[in-house]
Each structure stands twice: as structure tokens, then as C-alpha cells.
Design a protein around this nucleic acid. Structure first.
Lengths: 193, 193
DNA sequence: TAGTAAAAATGACCATGGTCAATTTAACAG
DNA sequence: CTGTTAAATTGACCATGGTCATTTTTACTA
């Protein structure tokens, strides 16, 4: 028989996340070492890997939290056109541009919205889609009507990933990201004239 | 003064690529070991890293070649609508779906089309864009006219990345990829009604 | 309270990507 | 042919992510 997780496990899990967070705040995700996390959490190295299957999962937990925080901030906005929709994504772009590692991890899980086994990044992409769909549903005639809401939101996500990727490969500033994003969004969302 | 690369270097480079290719054909990119490549090429491990800065670069060379071959095949087609455009991408999807590693590497360099220092993957994305733009330019009224050709091609690429990502995260078959791609392409390219 | 079975934690150990000071080889000048 | 310099190669070495048999702790039962 399998039993419920012990209180100890939950505490250790929290300590690990806290340790990883403070270390990554200090030196960025790139410099994060699993052994340091263990040390800081007062735990053996093997324990880290019994909580997070690999480094990617630990990073996903951290970056997923970053994304959720960014989405919280995003939700304050109420964009009504492509320009303000692009601007509303600023917090997300901040997270994605923080680190090469953030970029890699986010990109890798970017399309995971349909996955059954939801990781934290995947989850935040799902949430992002709901937020965007919610906004678009209030736009009335300002948005095209020939494709359904879900498809529209998926497209927004595709272009979001695109501009994030472009940002990292060339050396674009953050404002250039939103400008570029706005161009895509206008072309994608604007109704036929 | 710096001198031109010696003949020896070029030969070694070729041997390394050949070795890596045959090993990856055998067991996939995932199981490729740098030391095995060195061994097979009859060279010390350090030599591999003097030719390819890191494993990613070596993989990029291989996968970049895969992509170019796929593009060669793609160029045989002459799609005239979203459906056939999606179908024409089949060879590319094959390459991208070969391996988790291919997916990761391709995705990471997907947005690199604007980069100055062109890697092989980046290059193939540039070439892809030219091909698509060339095709679209012959579509006449079958394609929207409110945005320019370049932007259209960029969008095609964004959706291509999206469906590749979706494919790996959920368990979609290859036909489902092209179907999904076609949906996006219709919505993106079809002129206003 | 003692017994016990599963969960949790441990840390020595391994695999592999990557580094670099030292060595060998190629190419050219005189 | 000999000497000289930079290019090319070498392989011992390191860093770090990840494994797993063993040990310790927890929570439950009689």
C-alpha cells in the first residue's frame, strides 16, 4: 500500500524551493548548482533528486512561479486593442528575458498546453491562454470573427514565443519586443476590412 | 599573423562530422557521446572541442544539414493554398520530430533568423523563409494583401514552431501536425472576405 | 511500548561534457 | 635543409548532473 506524503517531505520540499530561489536570486538560474541547493537546504544531494527528477524540473518550478507572478501582474491590465495587448505582456517578457536558461526552459515547454501531465510552465501557458481569450471576448467588432476565440488565443501564444525567441537571438531591447509583438498581433487579430 | 586553416584541419573536421553522422544514424542524437565521436574519427577528445565549441554546435551542424536536406525536398513542391503549403512542410516535420534533441535544438535556434552570427540552423530558417515568401508571392489574390510578404512568412514560421512544439508535448501524429498547421495557415494567410 | 513496513534521506559513486598546459605537426623564410 | 612560428592535436584533469544500495525516520498496528 502507498501512503500519503509525510509532513517531513513537504517541509523539505519547501526548504529546497526556498534555497533554490535565494541562490538563483543571487546569481541567476545559469549559475545554480544542485549541490549548492542541497547544502543551503541542509540536505544531501540525493535528496534534491528525490524531490525533483532532474535540474529542469527544479528550474521549471522556479520559472513557473515567475511566470505565474507575471500573469498576476498582467491580469491587472484590460487591453482593448493590439497595442495595449502587446504592452500588457511586458511582465511576461521580463521573465522570459531574465536568463538564457529561462528562455530555454520556457521555449521547451511553450507548446505544452495540451499535455496531460501538467508541469508548472505548462500550467502557466494554459492560464495565459485563458486570460487572453477572456480579454479578446470583450473586444466586440475590434477583433476578427472568422475564427474562434481559442484559435485566436493560440495564435497570440505562437507570436509571443516568436518574439521571445527573436529577442534572444538578435539583441533587441524590451521595447522592440513589444513593438514587434504588436505588429504580429495587429495582423493576426484585426478583422477584415 | 593568423594563417589560413591547414588542409589537415579540414580533413579532421570532415572525419568528425562523418563519425558523428554515422553514430547518430545508429542510435539517434540523444545517445551521441562526444568521446565516441572522437574515437570513431580516430582523434583525441580535446580535438572534437577544438572543432566544435560544445556539443550543441556539433548537433547544430548535423541537424542543420538535416534541415537543409528537408528544404531541398520541400522545394520540389509548389503549394498554392494553405492546405498544400502545410503538406509541403512534411519533410521539415519529419526532421523536427526525429528526436527530442532535434526538437530542443531547433526550437532554441528557431527565432535566430535575424542573428548576425549565422549557425547552420539559423541559416536554414532563413532559407525556409525565402522559400515560403517565394511561394506566397505567386498566390495572387488567394493571399491577404494588407500585410507585407516578409511579415507573412515570419508568421508562417511562428506557426510552424508552434505546431512542432505542440507535437512533442502532446502525443500527436504527423498528420495531426499538418492538419493543425493548415488551420493556422488558413487563418493567417487567407485574405479578408 | 515494541514491532514493522513504507517513506524519506543519505553520500559514495558514476557518466559525460568541457578545459588547458604541454606536445606535435604543418608551412613558410632564408 | 634548417630554423621558426603559429596551427593543430593531445589526454590528463575537472565540474557537475544524476544514480542507487544502504540507512534512518515516520506513522501506523497490535
Amino acid at each position: 500500500m502507498s501512503r500519503a506524503p509525510q509532513k517531513r517531505k513537504i517541509e523539505t520540499h519547501d526548504r529546497l524551493l526556498t534555497a533554490a530561489r535565494s541562490l538563483s536570486d543571487l546569481n541567476g538560474y545559469d549559475a545554480l548548482r544542485m549541490e549548492e541547493v542541497a547544502l543551503k537546504a541542509g540536505v544531501a544531494k540525493g535528496t534534491v533528486f528525490s524531490h525533483f527528477a532532474d535540474k529542469d524540473r527544479l528550474l521549471s518550478a522556479l520559472i513557473g512561479a515567475d511566470l505565474h507572478a507575471a500573469l498576476d501582474q498582467m491580469e491587472q491590465a484590460a487591453p482593448t486593442d493590439p497595442r495595449s495587448l502587446a504592452d500588457a505582456h511586458e511582465p511576461l517578457f521580463q521573465v522570459a528575458a531574465r536568463d538564457r536558461v529561462s528562455f530555454d526552459i520556457i521555449l521547451r515547454y511553450s507548446g505544452a498546453a495540451l499535455e496531460t501531465d501538467l508541469g508548472p510552465i505548462t500550467q502557466s501557458f494554459g492560464r495565459h491562454m485563458e486570460i487572453v481569450a477572456g480579454w479578446l471576448s470583450t473586444w466586440g467588432d475590434a477583433v476578427r470573427k472568422d475564427i474562434d476565440l481559442e484559435l485566436q488565443a493560440e495564435g497570440v501564444q505562437a507570436f509571443m514565443v516568436q518574439v521571445i525567441a527573436l529577442n534572444f537571438c538578435a539583441l533587441h531591447s524590451s521595447t522592440e519586443i513589444t513593438d514587434r509583438f504588436e505588429t504580429y498581433l495587429s495582423a493576426w487579430l484585426t478583422p477584415a476590412r
